[in-house]
C-alpha cells in the first residue's frame, strides 16, 4: 500500500463577531448546525483530516490534518492575539453576506494576521448564502479582497452545509501547493 505523508497544519478562522466562524467549523468537523448564536470566547480548537491529496509533481499522497483555531472576535489586538495567530499556515477569512461592515473588518484582520504570518495562505468565505439572493451579492467586494490577497473566495452556508467542505479543501490545496 502506498505510504501517506501526514502533515498537520494550524489554520485560523478570522472574521467579525456573528459571521459564522464557529458554525462553519461545527459543520465541517461535526456535520452539525446549531441555530442559536453563541459568541466565542478565546479560542476553540478542533482537528479534522482532509481527504488525501496526490501531489502532481512528486506523485506522493499527502494527508493533511487541520488544527483549526476558531478565534473569538478580536476587539483588542494584543500579545495574546499575536500568540493566537503565531505559526498558522493559513486562514479562512469569513465575511457575513448580510452585513457590509464585516468586509471592512476582515481587511484589517488579514493585515494583522499577515504581519505575523507573511507566508501563510488565505481563503475567503462569504457566509450565510442561504439568507441572501445570490444576484444581490456585491461581488466587487470579494473580487477586491481576493485580488488584494491573491486568493480565491467561496460562498458558503454553515446552516445548509453548502460549499463548507469545499472551503476547507480549497485552503488545504493551497497549502499543499505552496509546500
Amino acid at each position: 500500500m502506498e505510504k501517506r505523508i501526514e502533515i498537520r497544519k494550524k489554520i485560523c478562522m478570522l472574521g467579525a463577531f456573528g459571521v459564522g466562524k464557529t458554525s462553519l467549523v461545527r459543520q465541517f468537523v461535526f456535520n452539525k448546525y446549531e441555530d442559536k448564536y453563541l459568541s466565542t470566547i478565546g479560542v476553540l480548537i478542533s482537528q479534522k483530516q482532509l481527504p488525501p491529496f496526490r501531489k502532481s509533481d512528486s506523485g506522493r499522497i499527502e494527508q493533511l490534518e487541520f488544527i483549526i483555531w476558531d478565534l473569538a472576535n478580536i476587539e483588542k489586538y494584543n500579545k495574546m492575539t499575536k500568540n493566537y495567530f503565531r505559526g498558522a499556515a493559513g486562514a479562512i477569512a469569513v465575511c457575513d453576506l448580510t452585513r457590509a461592515h464585516t468586509f471592512e473588518e476582515i481587511d484589517q484582520l488579514l493585515n494583522k494576521f499577515l504581519e505575523i504570518n507573511p507566508k501563510s495562505r488565505i481563503v475567503l468565505a462569504g457566509n450565510k448564502i442561504d439568507l441572501v439572493d445570490q444576484q444581490l451579492i456585491e461581488m466587487e467586494r470579494f473580487l477586491h479582497l481576493s485580488d488584494s490577497y491573491q486568493t480565491t473566495y467561496t460562498l458558503t452556508s454553515a446552516k445548509t452545509g453548502e460549499n463548507v467542505e469545499q472551503l476547507f479543501v480549497c485552503l488545504g490545496n493551497e497549502l499543499l501547493k505552496s509546500e
Partner: peptide, 10 residues
C-alpha cells in the same frame, strides 16, 4: 502561554 483555550466538542 496560551489563554482561554477550549477543545471544541459537539
Amino acid at each position: 502561554q496560551l489563554e482561554k483555550i477550549c477543545k471544541f466538542t459537539n
